[in-house]
C-alpha cells in the first residue's frame, strides 16, 4: 500500500501537525464560540425591523444599514470618532515610542522591571475608576488647577473637564501601555552593533533615528496603532464621562441604541458599518505597506 511505503517518511511531520492542531484547537474553539457566535447573532439582529417579542414579531430589512444616508449627522459623529482615534493614537506614539526606546536602550535590570511595572499599572485598575479619577483632576478648580496654581503664579482655571482634550487625555492614559509594549518589543530586537556601526560611519542621532530605529520599529509602532485605534473609535465610557456635551462618538451613539432606545437592530447595523470601515481602512494600509518595498 502506498501509505505503508511512505510511512517512514512523513510520520514525524504528521504527529507534528496533530500536535499543532491540538495546541491551536482551544484557541480557535474559543474564538469561534466567543467571537463568531455573538457576531453572527448581531448580524442577524442588524437585519431585523425590531427586537422580536411575542405579539411583536420582527421582519427582515436592510433599512438599518442606510442609517448614514438617512441621518447625515451620523457622518459628523463618525468624523469626530475618527479624529479622536487619530489624536489618541498619535499622542500614544509620540509619548510611547521614546519611552520604549529608553526602556530598551538605557535602563537595565531591576530598574527596567520597576519601570515596566509602572508602565502597565493602568491595566491593574478598573477602567471606570481610572476615568472617574480623571474627572477630579480635570474639573474646574480640580487637582490639576490647584497643582498648577501652586506652581505658576496667576494660573487661571483651565476648565478642561467636558472638553475634547479631556477625552483624549483619558484615552491616552488608558491605551499608552499598548504602544510602549509593542514598540519595546521591536526596539529591543535591534542589535546594538548596528547603531555603533552607524555611529562609527559618522551618522548623527537624527539619521540613526530616521534610517535605523524608526524603520526597524515600524512594525511595533503599527501594531500598537492598530491595537489603540480600533478600540478608541468605538470607545464610549471615556467620552461619556469626560466629554460632557462634546462626548458624542460612534461608541456612545451605538451604546444609546442598545441601552436607551432599545433599538438593537440599528445599534448592530451601526457596529457592522464601523467594522467594515475599519477593515477597509486597514486593508488599504496593509496594501500600501506591501507595495512600498517594490516601489
Amino acid at each position: 500500500m502506498p501509505a505503508e511505503r511512505h510511512a517512514a517518511g512523513p510520520r514525524p511531520r504528521r504527529t507534528g501537525t496533530a500536535a499543532t492542531a491540538a495546541l491551536l484547537a482551544p484557541t480557535y474553539l474559543w474564538l469561534a464560540v466567543a467571537v463568531f457566535l455573538p457576531l453572527a447573532g448581531m448580524l442577524y439582529f442588524s437585519l431585523l425591523t425590531g427586537v422580536p417579542a411575542p405579539h411583536h414579531p420582527a421582519a427582515f430589512t436592510a433599512e438599518n444599514y442606510l442609517a448614514f444616508v438617512r441621518k447625515p449627522y451620523l457622518l459628523h459623529v463618525a468624523w469626530r470618532s475618527l479624529a479622536l482615534g487619530l489624536w489618541t493614537t498619535g499622542l500614544c506614539a509620540l509619548i510611547g515610542w521614546p519611552a520604549a526606546l529608553a526602556l530598551s536602550r538605557a535602563v537595565r535590570g531591576r530598574a527596567r522591571d520597576a519601570i515596566f511595572l509602572l508602565t502597565i499599572l493602568p491595566f491593574w485598575t478598573s477602567g471606570l475608576v481610572r476615568v472617574l479619577s480623571w474627572t477630579m483632576v480635570l474639573a474646574d478648580h480640580g487637582l490639576l488647577d490647584r497643582a498648577l496654581g501652586a506652581v505658576i503664579p496667576g494660573w487661571r482655571v483651565s476648565d478642561l473637564l467636558y472638553t475634547f482634550p479631556a477625552i483624549v487625555i483619558g484615552l491616552v492614559h488608558a491605551y499608552l501601555p499598548y504602544m510602549i509594549l509593542t514598540c519595546y518589543v521591536s526596539l529591543a530586537a535591534i542589535d546594538p552593533a548596528l547603531i555603533e556601526a552607524a555611529r562609527g560611519l559618522g551618522a548623527r542621532a537624527p539619521v540613526i533615528f530616521a534610517r535605523i530605529l524608526l524603520p526597524i520599529s515600524l512594525p511595533g509602532l503599527l501594531s500598537g496603532a492598530v491595537l489603540i485605534f480600533v478600540p478608541v473609535i468605538g470607545s464610549f465610557m471615556e467620552p461619556r464621562i469626560l466629554g460632557g456635551r462634546v462626548g458624542v462618538t460612534m461608541g456612545t451613539v451605538i451604546e444609546d441604541q442598545f441601552t436607551q432606545a432599545f433599538d438593537w437592530p440599528l445599534g448592530a447595523a451601526l457596529s457592522f458599518t464601523m467594522l467594515a470601515a475599519v477593515l477597509l481602512l486597514f486593508g488599504v494600509l496593509y496594501g500600501a505597506s506591501r507595495l512600498r518595498p517594490a516601489a
Binding site: K71, V77, T252, A261
Partner: peptide
Amino acid sequence: PDERRKAFVDLWSEMKAFYAG
C-alpha cells in the same frame, strides 16, 4: 407608540451630535 418613541430618540440623538459639534 413605538414609532413615536423612535422619533423622539432620533431627534435627541441628532441634538446630542449637534451639541457636540
